[in-house]
Nucleic acid binder design. Structure first.
Lengths: 259, 259
DNA sequence: TTTCTTGTTGCAACATCTGCAACGCCCATT
DNA sequence: AATGGGCGTTGCAGATGTTGCAACAAGAAA
């Protein structure tokens, strides 16, 4: 749409491959040296490119400062909430959103079941970390040494007969969760409540949050709840996509062709 | 230099603060809606901005990908990382790696403390330039006129009672740092956190980066931390040697494993 | 329904960008 | 020291791309 900006932005992926001097940039852009120079100057003023000692250009610091700032200001909740509501309207059960932070898993959003039977959970409250589906998902994503360290540091309260008994069992469960990409809690926290969860990932593939659908088995059986799994996973994936901004990203070579 | 590109790039930091709609962007940019629209479209085609469900714009995935590459291209990081990890394993405290670029000092790598007490810092984030040990080291290495110019241009926020008060004090501190070849920050940024740093030099003797070890004084006193200085300096020297390729390179295979 | 708000498009005026050619600087070669 | 080549930089005139306007479209609110 805007030729000048288009050209300027095309410089960035080019420099991402490695440092380049003015002439190389001009050539690969298909413009005159002086044009490339002016574009690079503008990029430079904004800190998007950096000029190293040998006068060659490479990507600049502001790029990751920007990315960093954006990530900090990005709230999963904002993005997830409408999806959670939509899911809740479809299935009727309670929907949770949780994040991992400093050895804890916290609920950060919740859409109440439309059925009168409610469960005990609250936004901001730590999750029952050894049994909840969202906790399993979030912990399963930790790098191996930390995962093990956390698992061994935890207490394993026997809420019910189905609660995770100890670190060994928990680590095995985490491995399974990691493998299959989803998690359950079948009566592990409260005897009569089942729960299925799915992961929400950021652009780098790491988990940023996890969501779950919970229902007491007086309303639906565990099997019926599990039938909702594809729906829950699709929702989680939709949130992931929106969160990481992957949606309509074109491949770099599309640009030249489209011009 | 280039108005169009200048405007387009000005949109990015604006969106980094949070999502904005067309009109907000146009207003804050001081241009007509249609102009802003075209700029945003161009940014969009390059994946630099993303349009969320509510039509508002935010920074896009490609920006993050580029930022990622930018960080990876800073190759001191590749070499330093294994050393930083090793040091962290030995002392347990948080280890930072930082570079100077365009009047800023940026963290480009960090290995977290194994203690639960963590400090507020993040890769890609600008360092508190007037107090941080790594900043003192990097600025002390600038040629005299530039060093003075930068020092006088800076603000001197009084984070704590021990923060560097003004340019004069800062220049004196830099002279000392230059002299002794290492630097400290004793409660200058956060009252309870101390920090010791050492320089990493390229083949030409100029600084290419600086590293530091930080610890809250609830864990170790300033004196205990200072006792680690020889170790920190040895680590920095090892990185310098490997980076400048002067010495028998230690363990080439470490890189692949650590990355 | 009407009324507002917000995003989008076509267009004519013109400001901005472009490519050129000449210049200057630095380094390598003689 | 002088010469020559490589590369970055600058001023300029022409023209291309960009701008702001005003009108339109679409959706939300009243």
């Amino acid at each position: 749409m805007s030729q000048t900006v288009d050209r300027a932005l095309s410089i960035l992926p080019l420099l991402a491959q490695g440092p380049a001097n003015l002439e190389q940039v001009a050539d690969r852009l298909g413009v005159h040296k002086s044009t490339a120079l002016r574009l690079l100057r503008t990029l430079h003023e904004h800190g998007m490119v950096y000029r190293q000692a040998d006068q060659r250009y490479r990507l600049g610091a502001r790029l990751f400062a920007l990315a960093q700032e954006a990530v900090e200001n990005l709230d999963v909740r904002d993005i997830a909430h409408p999806h959670l509501v939509a899911l809740n309207e479809k299935v009727g059960h309670t929907v949770h959103l949780a994040v991992y932070e400093e050895n804890e898993v916290l609920y950060i959003d919740k859409v109440e079941s439309r059925y009168p039977v409610r469960m005990y959970s609250r936004i901001g409250k730590p999750v029952a970390i050894t049994v909840a589906a969202v906790a399993k998902l979030l912990l399963a994503d930790l790098p191996e040494p930390e995962r093990r360290a956390v698992a061994e540091r935890l207490d394993y309260p026997q809420y019910t007969a189905r609660s995770t008994p100890d670190a060994t069992a928990f680590l095995a469960e985490l491995a399974k969760v990691r493998e299959q990409g989803w998690a359950t809690d079948l009566g592990g926290h409260e005897e009569s409540i089942n729960c299925i969860g799915a992961p929400i990932r950021g652009a780098d593939g790491r988990l940023v949050a996890a969501m779950s659908v919970s229902a007491p088995n007086v309303v639906v059986s565990a099997e019926e709840l599990l039938a909702l799994l594809p729906l829950v996973r699709r929702t989680a994936d939709a949130i992931s996509r929106e969160y990481s901004g992957n949606d309509p990203v074109r491949t770099p070579q599309d640009h030249k062709e489209a011009r």
